[in-house]
């Protein structure tokens, strides 16, 4: 229910897209409802851009939920292709869905990616009273008996949370992915609630969703999917240290329409870079459990093309796409 309910949150804000359009200030589209990562990206980056003077007027945030970001993507490609006053929030989920052809045939080449300035590290979490002490414990348990562990995550089957588990299991030498039990819930918080209640054994999610439960002692983080340990959470081991070579972060960034001028692209990537380097952004990252991650402009475009290729390959391997 929640998903449909939440859809209407955007209400008044969306009206401005529907009926206004005459606004002169720049606009940031969050392709989801308020409260999620994309909404956070738009609101926080937009606010800091204005506060540090990278843009002249406050950036107006528009929520445009639908099709897992597909509606906003189609809107940008088809109706706003040359709009130089438009930025759109994006994340790993955008890349995953583009790679899995979930946006009705559109590809990442239909827009221009601007950059990412923070990332929410992927984590594997169990309840504090669970018997698994390390990622290897958990993966060994799955290998021994796949029915003994159910994973819960905030994305649907085949989504990024699910892929993270499959990648980790793949590296550990377990390939019978159809035997892996995964349920997709409405969000990371829901998934953790189910784990604490003992209904599922492990949660795959993002660091920011876990922080509160970690502090309260309800859960144990078995591994983070980053290259290095996260500052502030130095006692949590990475998956790499445990011999599982998976790096999976949920980066937070933006894209712009493809048809804008090179100067406009440059202007926006400068503004984004300025935000990424600001103290305000550092504080916002810390408050929200984000780890540093900085790639802007053509460098980001090149990196992303590689990532999307990898996800597409993995999705074909596991049969999520044909």
């Amino acid at each position: 229910m929640l998903k449909t309910v939440v859809k209407r949150l955007a209400a008044g804000v969306v009206l401005s897209v529907g009926l206004a359009g005459a606004a002169s200030a720049a606009e940031c589209i969050a392709p989801a409802n308020p409260g999620g990562g994309w909404d956070f990206t738009c609101r926080t980056i937009g606010k800091i851009m204005y506060d540090i003077g990278a843009v002249d007027e406050p950036i107006q945030v528009t929520n445009m939920a639908g099709g897992g970001g597909g509606l906003a993507f189609a809107h940008v490609v088809n109706e706003r292709n040359t709009d130089e006053d438009l930025i759109v929030a994006a994340s790993s989920a955008t890349a995953t869905r583009l790679a899995q052809n979930k946006y009705g045939g559109a590809t990442y080449k239909d827009v221009r990616f601007l950059g990412a300035i923070g990332a929410d590290p992927g984590v594997i979490v169990v309840a504090a009273d669970a018997p698994y002490q390390s990622l290897t414990d958990l993966l060994d348990a799955v290998k021994a008996d796949p029915t003994s562990v159910t994973f819960a995550g905030g994305s649907a089957v085949g989504g990024y949370d699910h892929l993270k588990v499959l990648m980790a299991l793949g590296r550990a030498g377990f390939d019978d992915i159809r035997a892996v039990k995964y349920i997709g819930l409405d969000g990371g918080g829901d998934a953790i609630t189910q784990a604490i209640g003992g209904h599922v054994q492990a949660v795959t999610g993002d660091m920011s969703e876990v922080v509160g439960f970690l502090k309260s002692g309800d859960v144990r983080v078995l591994a983070v999917f980053t290259d290095d340990r996260i500052p502030g959470f130095d006692d949590i081991p990475t998956a790499k240290e445990q011999g599982i070579d998976v790096v999976a972060v949920n980066w937070r960034g933006l894209y712009v329409p493809k048809g804008i001028s090179e100067e406009a692209y440059q202007k926006w990537s400068d503004a984004l870079a300025a935000v990424g380097k600001s103290d305000e952004w550092k504080a916002a990252m810390e408050a929200n459990g984000l780890a540093p991650f900085f790639k802007v402009g053509p460098e980001f475009e090149g990196w992303l093309a590689g990532v999307i290729e990898e996800i597409a390959q993995l999705s074909r391997d596991i049969g999520v796409i044909q």
């Binding site: 939920a65 639908g66 099709g67 509606l71 009705g104």
Partner: peptide, 10 residues
């Protein structure tokens, strides 16, 4: 595409 997220009960 408009039906991808289902029919809003509102």
């Amino acid at each position: 595409l408009h039906l991808m997220d289902g029919v809003d009960f509102l």
